[in-house]
């Protein structure tokens, strides 16, 4: 710039920029929820877990097909599979409930917040900002959705494999009465819903544990441990007075849905117990997360 230009240069005062005050967009929560689900489903580990769950009914179905089991052997409903493929759904759920399903839920729920804390993304989510209550809400919904997806994977693969290998016929209830195949299918839907609610109690426990640490692996292991520990207490006869209140005690209670006169009151009572567990765990998680110092 020449000195002539310098001397004639005038000071131009630009208006102070105005920043539009930020407004909440419509559907913002669901956008975050979809992002959360993408995050869960883009992760190979989580897909592998679902694949393991899919293998359970597949293996059982094939095993039954190539060697018909004698009645009374193996897990519940195994003997009925050859008569009606729909029973594969119930057998597979019975097999997956004690270990495989808690494992999958433990991994996903345990990772939910501890994982974000451990790799540092939690501090960026919170400064976006995602308020802590909103974060817990979306994480809860994400973990609940994955729980439903896990149960659905077992049930749907069971239904398809059972249908293909053994056919879906009129459905003989445990009490001996027979109902239509469609009616049997409706009962299967209720069974799946019951199992989702039961497992959601564990998922909520995993969320709470996940707020306690930045170590995702520890949170996963502890969540799985929670289910194992409850099952362990459930197996000690001396403790039968507390069995009814244990987290895992009524998980297999879905058999009730396969009788002719369903004890709806009991099913509701057990479901409320599971939802009660979930409510307590989620309150604890909220209390912890909303006051937590984020140092990672």
């Amino acid at each position: 710039m020449s000195s002539a230009e310098m001397s004639t240069a005038e000071v131009t005062v630009l208006p102070r920029p105005s920043f539009a005050p930020p407004r909440t967009q419509r559907g913002a929560f669901w956008r975050l929820y979809r992002s959360e689900m993408r995050l869960l489903l883009r992760r190979r580990r989580n897909i592998a877990l679902l694949a393991v769950l899919a293998i359970v009914p597949l293996l059982i179905g094939v095993a039954v097909k190539i060697s018909t089991p004698r009645n009374g052997e193996g897990p519940a409903f195994l003997g009925q599979i050859t008569g009606n493929g729909l029973f594969l759904v119930f057998t597979a759920l019975t097999v997956a409930l004690p270990l495989f399903l808690p494992l999958v839920i433990g991994v996903v729920a345990g990772d939910s917040i501890a994982g974000e804390a451990g790799n540092g993304t939690l501090r960026y989510l919170l400064t976006v900002p995602v308020t802590r209550t909103r974060l817990l809400a979306v994480k809860t919904l994400g973990v609940a959705s994955f729980t439903a997806l896990a149960v659905l994977t077992v049930a749907l693969v069971g239904l398809v494999v059972g249908g293909v290998l053994f056919g879906l016929h009129a459905f003989t209830l445990l009490s001996g009465d027979t109902v239509s195949a469609a009616s049997g299918l409706v009962r299967a839907v209720f069974v799946a819903a019951y199992v989702v609610i039961a497992l959601f109690a564990l998922a909520a426990g995993g969320l709470f544990i996940s707020t306690l640490t930045e170590n995702a692996i520890a949170a996963m292991a502890t969540t799985i441990g929670l289910a194992v520990f409850s099952a362990l207490l459930d197996a000690v006869p001396q403790l039968d007075r507390i069995h009814g209140a244990l987290l895992t005690d009524h998980w297999l209670g879905f058999g009730e849905l396969l009788r002719s006169n369903v004890d709806a009151a009991a099913l509701i009572r057990w479901s409320l117990l599971h939802l009660g567990y979930a409510a307590v765990f989620l309150s604890l998680a909220w209390a912890r997360l909303s006051t937590k110092d984020i140092t990672s």
């Binding site: 407004r23 967009q25 995050l39 190979r44 960026y124 989510l125």
Partner: peptide, 19 residues
């Protein structure tokens, strides 16, 4: 997130911004 691309990571943050 390690397993997401740069773009997808930004999309994740943008999706979490309610504004």
């Amino acid at each position: 997130h390690l397993y997401l691309s740069g773009w997808d990571n930004l999309r994740r943050l943008d999706a979490s911004d309610r504004t």
